[in-house]
Write a protein that binds this DNA or RNA. Structure first.
Length: 749
RNA sequence: GCCGGCGUGGUGGAAUGGCAGACGCGUCGGACUCAAAAUCCGAUGGGCUUCGGCCCGUGUGGGUUCAACUCCCACCGCCGGCACCA
């Protein structure tokens, strides 16, 4: 109605664990299960009157789609962005597969909530960390995103600047490399802590007893525990010998897997030092305490910045200055270097399950790991495999799939049997919508025309999952030269959930309302109106059967009115010249004004902030006024027709079927969706008279009708002439009078 | 612990610093009906009232302002994220 070319597609993210698990539960093959569900849901979406462009429909489990997952994998493999490595990974014992870090929520599986365990496996990864800096930097360009999501992504990426410092080991030529962001506290290091899995542990510790003690350190670091290795390292700045401990709270995955411990200025080190009787050496004093006042008997670490004490040539410097100077000093002597660390880890994409994109790799005894040649894509998922997790991919049992020839040497070889994470599918589907039939993942010209997505709606649960992966993919695809955009989604709306009986509406909770039932009983327009009226979209929507009834009442009243006054309404003069009517009764011009005001309000509510609830509320107000209006003459009848026509037009996006039918019933031809969206006239929308609120000392004491556009002096005069106001101001000294143009007068006495 | 967000009638929710509670739901009263449902009309934040009105009220306590749901500070509560990240 606004004349825009809008791409509003729908597709099916249907290739993954959730679908496979559901299929197993129902004893059906995932393929059958998935396609039956797609058919059912598509029917429901259509019944709701959602105006998707079905010509662009995609399903991620279709080989015509997932072959491009494989294509991207090959391109990433070529560029070193896809690689395989052995590591400790998150394993969901219930889903029997690996999960990426983003997919572990509070130590549980994002999907089934089972407790995730660590498992050592060889896995394929996407090198998302190569884009860490850009992913972080570009968050500041996402001005149309909720601040909350941006903050979550920034925290997840977790950039920190610091230095790596080498500590040489006494009686060894090896060094321990540590990462720290607090090199201003280097003089306060009194011991070292390294991760249990640190490679140096095996090299340095020969004593079997100590090794056993290290081995039995509790994995879960709820309590800080450690074992002295028997080795010492040398502080490169002080020359002090520091005992080296293995500590269970030091992570191998972050930084270098080793830290210098400064108990005076790090609470974790402080607790550890207390437990093992290690010295505490203060090297930072708070900036507001006097120099030379020696702090004693500290009970907790002082972790803030301050001023350096007992730190050699750096004594007296402020922390930030000291960090800069110490970093330079270390670099100039070759003792360390400045580095940037990220909390973000590479994205583990291997899944030991059936229902997913086969990873297009072949293992050859003589050629090693060989990518499937591009022209052999897609590697199709064999249909005759029974799904289910069994600790390894079900594909491993499919002999016909596994056994293949090496593309390099032609000898016998085996296919990779893991499949890709379902989040790979959803990381670029929006690009596919631009050119769903293209012989490449995306046609650059189509992408140029449509991308980026102007408006993206999704759940907050994807703040660091789908929304981060999609940003990564977009940047990779840009670097492959297929698109020019840096970011996929210009504006993001995180919509709320549907709540019923105090819980999220979901099949597993059994509190769902069946859309088919609702549509049969009320019609889809009623359901649509209720859903949009009950709450703004970013908030949770509380389901209310009575609320649905209310929405139906609203539509019924309009319907009944049209049929009752059909003869009147059908007279077609479509009088837009009504803007400046010659002689309308005051009721008629009131309704005309209200109509223009409603056009304005509805338009703004839709366009400004998607607050459909207030748009519908405005329409209800207009309908209330319209239904109580009784035309007294031709002018009045014309206004009523005008008003009715606009109610129908404004209702069209919310209740399309309803509006379409009333449009015809009131004598119009052609579909309402081809009508122009109405415009309001600012002059007509203006009130002729406004209610002036008169306050004395901020309290409302009178309300007076005044003609619009009265100047401030006249308004003031009018206010003072009110008997009530005189009463309140009599015998008191006037201190101040504030006039808000045409709205309010506040008299201060 | 750190970082966000949110606290408004019985209820879902409205309010560019300018009449708090739009609109809807529910409830109550009335009309229609033999009756009920549906529908329509009216009332509906709390307290007081000499029926003219008056006072209080947006989690709590302060502050800024002629004026605060809105801005600032502190606290309480709820929700979400991160959490030995060196």
């Amino acid at each position: 109605m606004k004349g825009f070319n809008v791409l509003h597609p729908m597709g099916w993210d249907a290739f993954g664990l959730p679908a496979e698990n559901a299929a197993i539960k129902h004893g059906v093959h995932p393929s059958k299960w998935t396609f039956e569900n797609i058919a059912y849901m598509k029917k429901e979406l259509k019944r709701m009157g959602l105006s998707y462009d079905w010509q662009r429909e995609v399903a991620t489990c279709d080989p015509a789609y997932y072959r491009w997952n494989q294509w991207f994998f090959l391109k990433m493999f070529e560029r070193g962005l896809a690689y395989k490595k052995a590591s400790a990974v998150n394993w969901c014992p219930s889903c029997e597969t690996v999960l990426a870090n983003e997919q572990v929520i509070d130590g549980g599986c994002w999907r089934c909530e089972a407790v995730v365990v660590r498992k050592d496996l060889e896995q394929w990864f996407f090198r998302i960390t190569a884009y860490a800096e850009e992913l972080l930097r570009d968050t500041s360009a996402l001005t149309g995103w909720p601040e909350k999501v941006i903050v979550m992504q920034r925290n997840w990426i977790g950039r920190s600047e610091g230095v790596e410092v080498d500590f040489s080991i006494v009686d060894s030529d090896r060094k321990i490399r540590i990462f720290t962001t607090r090199h201003d506290t280097l003089y306060g290091a009194t011991f070292m802590s390294i991760a249990k899995k640190h490679p140096l542990v095996r090299e340095l510790v020969k004593d079997e007893r100590i090794l056993r003690d290290i081995e039995s350190l509790p994995e879960d670091a709820g309590k800080k525990e450690g074992v002295f290795t028997g080795c010492h390292a040398v502080n490169p700045l002080t020359g002090d010998k520091l005992p080296v401990y293995v500590a269970n709270f030091v992570l191998m995955e972050y930084g270098t897997g080793a830290i210098m411990a400064v108990p005076a200025h790090d609470q974790r080190d402080f607790e550890f030092a207390r437990k093992y009787g290690l010295p505490v050496r203060t090297v930072i004093r708070p900036a507001d305490t006097a120099a030379g006042s020696t702090p004693h008997a500290i009970t907790e670490a002082f972790e803030e910045d301050g001023v350096l004490v007992d730190s050699g040539q750096f004594t007296g410097l402020a922390s930030d200055e000291a960090r800069a100077k110490i970093a330079d000093y270390l670099e100039s002597r070759g003792l360390g270097r400045k580095v940037v660390n990220y909390k973000l880890r590479d994205w583990g994409i291997s899944r030991q399950r059936y229902w997913g994109t086969p990873i297009p790799v072949i293992y050859c005894p003589s050629c090693g790991t060989v990518p499937v040649p591009e022209h052999e894509l897609p590697v199709v998922l064999p249909p005759d495999v029974s799904p289910g997790g069994r600790g390894a991919s079900p594909l491993a049992a499919a002999g016909g799939f596994v056994m293949t020839k090496c593309p390099g040497c032609g000898g016998d070889a085996r296919r990779e049997t893991d499949t890709m994470d379902t989040f790979v599918d959803s990381s670029w589907y929006f690009l596919r919508y631009c050119s769903p039939e293209a012989g490449r993942p995306v046609d650059p010209a189509a992408a140029d025309y449509w991308m980026p997505v102007d408006h993206y709606t999704g759940g907050i649960e994807h703040a660091v999952l789908h929304l981060l992966y999609s940003r990564f993919f977009t940047k990779v695809i840009r670097d492959l030269g297929l698109v020019k955009i840096n970011e996929p989604f210009t504006s993001l709306l995180t919509q709320g959930m549907v709540i019923k009986d105090g819980a999220k509406m979901s099949k597993s909770k059994g509190n769902v309302v069946d859309p088919d039932f609702l549509i049969d009983k009320y019609g889809s327009d009623t359901v649509r109106i209720f859903c949009m009226f009950a709450a703004p979209p970013e908030r949770d929507l509380e389901w209310s059967d009575q609320g649905v009834e209310g929405a139906q009442r609203f539509l019924n009243r309009i319907w009944a009115f049209v049929y009752k006054n059909r003869d009147e309404l059908v007279k077609r003069d479509d009088n837009d010249g009504i803007k400046a009517p010659p002689a309308l009764s005051s009721a008629a011009s009131g309704l005309l004004r209200k109509t223009h005001q409603t056009i304005k309000k509805v338009t703004n509510s839709i366009e400004r902030d998607y607050h459909f609830n207030t748009a519908i509320a405005a329409l209800m107000e207009l309908v209330n006024e319209m239904l109580s209006f009784r035309p007294e003459d031709d002018g009045g009848a014309a206004v009523l027709r005008f008003s009715m026509r606009h109610v129908i037009l404004l209702l069209a996006p919310f209740a399309p079927h309803f509006a379409e039918e009333l449009w015809r019933e009131t004598g119009h031809h052609g579909s309402i969706v081809n009508e122009k969206w109405p415009e309001w006239d600012e002059e007509t929308a203006k009130e002729e008279e406004t209610e002036l609120v008169v306050q004395v000392n901020g309290k409302v004491r009178a309300k007076v009708m005044i003609p619009a556009g009265l100047d401030d002096e006249a308004v003031k005069e009018r206010a003072f002439s009110e008997p009530k106001i005189r009463e309140y101001t009599a015998g008191r000294t006037l201190k101040k009078v504030i006039v808000v143009r045409g709205r309010l007068v506040n008299i201060v006495v």
